[in-house]
């Protein structure tokens, strides 16, 4: 008898995410008189503007799924990922639930540029919660996977001497070294040459097999078709479609080509 119990790993329940931007006031609203008036009448600071990035998103993601997030620029994909990772708060009334601690694997991960690649690997792995013994065991594999030593011993040089592709590859290799329950990948697979891209896509498939859930944000249609079997189409903060990749991609293409 087939066991159909699917275990959810991420549940979004009517999630609204609002960015509040400080310090972009209209001219004339920052004069002492205007500020004083605001204090007296207790109105909100005029220099805060709000951007409603994600509007009432709900979905359930299960173990073993790889879900692609597509949408045009500024549709709220990265914002949603950051909220799932717990880095952005969700407004009251909704919530995002996740199993364990989802890890965000963004290209913006910054380690210390003045340190050698090897020490950054050590630092990044310790920051991810590995024990020192694990770190020592995994460091050679991580450096091999990133391929930074292919043209000479770059791992002992400070990271500021690396090309942007090398840094991005090293960052991805560090983050991909740990097993994650929920892995959120924000356009990180687009970096690197074709050789590295194949390796990283394979690594993402391996991570998926270790019974986790993967969310992938990418503009590369090929990456999404290769990696994900389910797709969510986000447009202006609202879910337009949620289903098997082929169907959702078809709808998205008709929308884009309109």
């Amino acid at each position: 008898m087939a066991d159909n119990e699917r275990v959810p790993t991420v549940i979004a329940d009517n999630a609204h995410i609002i960015y509040r931007i400080h310090g972009s006031a209209a001219p004339g609203s920052n004069t002492p008189l205007a500020s004083f008036k605001r204090i007296l009448t207790r109105t909100k600071q005029a220099s805060i503007r709000e951007v409603h990035a994600v509007k009432g998103v709900s979905f359930v993601a299960y173990k073993g799924e790889a879900i692609g997030l597509i949408g045009s620029n500024g549709s709220g994909k990265s914002t949603l990922l950051r909220a799932v990772a717990g880095l952005l708060p969700v407004e009251r009334g909704g919530a995002i639930y996740a199993a364990g601690q989802p890890s965000l694997l963004g290209v913006n991960a910054a380690l210390m540029n003045d340190l050698s690649g090897e020490r950054n690997v050590e630092l990044g792995c310790l920051a991810m919660g590995m024990s020192p013994a694990e770190v020592k065991a995994k460091t050679p594999d991580i450096i091999d996977f990133s391929g930074i030593n292919e043209r000479g011993d770059f791992s002992s040089l400070p990271m500021r001497t690396y090309s942007s592709g090398m840094s991005a590859r090293l960052r991805f290799s560090i983050a991909a070294a740990k097993k994650h329950d929920v892995l959120l990948i924000d356009e990180a697979l687009a970096t690197g040459d074709a050789k590295f891209r194949k390796r990283s896509e394979q690594r993402v498939r391996d991570l998926r097999k270790e019974a986790g859930t993967v969310f992938l944000v990418s503009h590369s249609e090929q990456s999404i078709r290769d990696t994900c079997e389910r797709c969510i189409w986000l447009e202006s903060g609202v879910i337009r479609a949620d289903g098997p990749t082929d169907d959702v991609m078809k709808e998205y293409e008709t929308y884009v080509n309109k």
């Binding site: 159909n4 119990e5 699917r6 275990v7 959810p8 790993t9 991420v10 549940i11 979004a12 329940d13 009517n14 709900s58 359930v60 909220a83 799932v84 990772a85 717990g86 880095l87 952005l88 708060p89 969700v90 919530a95 995002i96 639930y97 996740a98 199993a99 989802p102």
Partner: peptide, 21 residues
């Protein structure tokens, strides 16, 4: 599917998911 018909909140609680952040 034993989970059909549950609200998202109950589903989260049932499987021990915690609110992100």
């Amino acid at each position: 599917d034993a989970d059909t018909g549950l609200s998202h909140q109950e589903l989260a609680r049932r499987h021990g998911l915690t609110a992100a952040g």
